[in-house]
Nucleic acid binder design. Structure first.
Lengths: 257, 257
DNA sequence: CGGTGCATTGATCAGAATCAATGATCGTGG
DNA sequence: CCACGATCATTGATTCTGATCAATGCACCG
């Protein structure tokens, strides 16, 4: 997740980012954004960017800070420019699942009804771009291709959600963890190949909430994988992880033994 | 699910539905469709309908017949006109989850990549409308509002998928079943109110595959709810169900006891 | 009428949850 | 800079839910 590293660097100015900006300034803002080529923004040509800059407002969040609260009025669409966020849902009694992790380029707040369907908190230091609904709708009207981009992003999310349903509905603890590590490794690797070294800014609590497991169970499975030599914590940092055998991980991800 | 009743009635002619139809005939076809006001089609005005008719091909399926196979080339977009279908994903070793049930108006085959991300089988006798990708893309280009409709449908599906993740990640067997019955009752009730009499064309096998439970477990939970007087099989038909107390069901759906 | 296949029920097992205790880490303030 | 407390991770012991295994019952169909 290379975007994470640039979390603090991107877009230093904060004060000037109120309701609207001069087009010239705004253009350079979106042009130099680390998410320029991703998500929503990739649907716009350079010359169309100022329109987006004009309606989007930058905002930063500290780790664990709430970004979106389920059931709130869905007044804005968020695009992550750097960092990572967790998307989750909660039951009345406090139980929760993390339904996904979002990174640079991902959109948050695509609500079908008038209200957000999930909550979002920052995982790492997080930067987002907010565009409020009315202005967003104008942009979409003027640039219909944006909707196509939104649709394909929603489809991707849907596919990811269904994969997660498969994981939660069928897989045991070991398979869940291996599937998760593998998908993170693939996200970080080049063209679909899983990277053997893995940057994991996500706490174990959050991983267990994502996998539908208790922290204790996650800890035990993690230990088992280490003892079997499948993975190793990289010395020196707790957020780096080394996978000794991607093949072994792939086996474990789909086959109960 | 009123649409189910019309499964056999809708669109009797089959032979004439090859590559293209005369606009007049085609118009009346979509105009009188039971899904006219739903899904994709609701995005088109009456006078735009012939364009859709011209590119859509009708097809019927018997219960349990496959409609879409995961990983196949995604060559068409399906819209259900009547009946019910199950959407599911499978692991290499055969384990499977049903990720959702689709009824009249629902779209199937919205694939982000070039391939279907899931399989679909008919649950009841099923009628669908197929539109092949290239023609569909033309239609979308000429009627951009269709994409908006697709987007909001995808968002709804995404929300449903995330609810299912919450169910599988957090809830116990009783809560799962109650949540399911409740959502089915709501689908069949008027304006969000759950209906106390419930038409359930879905086999217990499929219900258990949807809830991430074994058939034996489902059977036991079902029995418990009956013994507690929360639900009752309506005498005379095994696909009808009566809920004695929606409130009780709502309690059970979200609260571990 | 017998057979096949699915649903139910019962008995047992196992995987993960829960409960509990200890140990590591981090931030804080003395 | 170190000591302390708080928080979180790990490990162990035990429980419990749901899975699995097995037997019986029932319905549908040839």
């Amino acid at each position: 997740m290379p975007a994470v590293a640039t979390a603090t660097a991107a877009l230093a100015s904060n004060a000037a980012l109120a309701a609207s900006c001069a087009a010239g300034r705004a253009k350079s803002r979106c042009m130099s954004c680390s998410a320029r080529s991703k998500g929503l923004c990739s649907a716009l040509k350079d010359e169309e960017l100022p329109r987006l800059s004009a309606i989007s407002h930058h905002k930063d969040y500290a780790p664990e800070e709430p970004v979106i609260r389920e059931a709130d009025e869905a007044e804005a669409l968020f695009t992550i420019t750097s960092g990572m966020a967790k998307v989750y849902k909660t039951l009345p009694d406090g139980r929760r699942v993390i339904t996904g992790f979002a990174t640079a380029g991902d959109a948050l707040g695509l609500a079908a009804g008038g209200r957000y369907a999930y909550s979002v908190d920052a995982v790492t230091p997080l930067s987002v771009c907010r565009a409020f609904r009315p202005q967003m709708e104008t942009l979409v009207r003027e640039n219909p291709q944006v909707q196509g981009r939104l649709l394909s992003m929603a489809s991707l999310e849907l596919t990811a959600a269904q994969d997660q349903i498969l994981l939660l509905g069928c897989k045991n603890a070991t398979e869940r963890l291996c599937s998760f590590l593998l998908s993170m490794a693939r996200r970080q690797g080049k063209d679909g190949d899983a990277s053997p070294t893995l940057y994991l800014p996500i706490s174990k609590q959050d991983i267990s909430a994502y996998l539908g497991l208790r922290p204790e169970t996650l800890s035990r499975v993690l230990r088992k994988l280490q003892d079997n030599g499948v993975i190793a914590w990289k010395p020196g940092s707790r957020v780096h992880l080394k996978v000794s055998s991607i093949e072994r991980l792939e086996e474990l991800a789909n086959a109960a033994e």
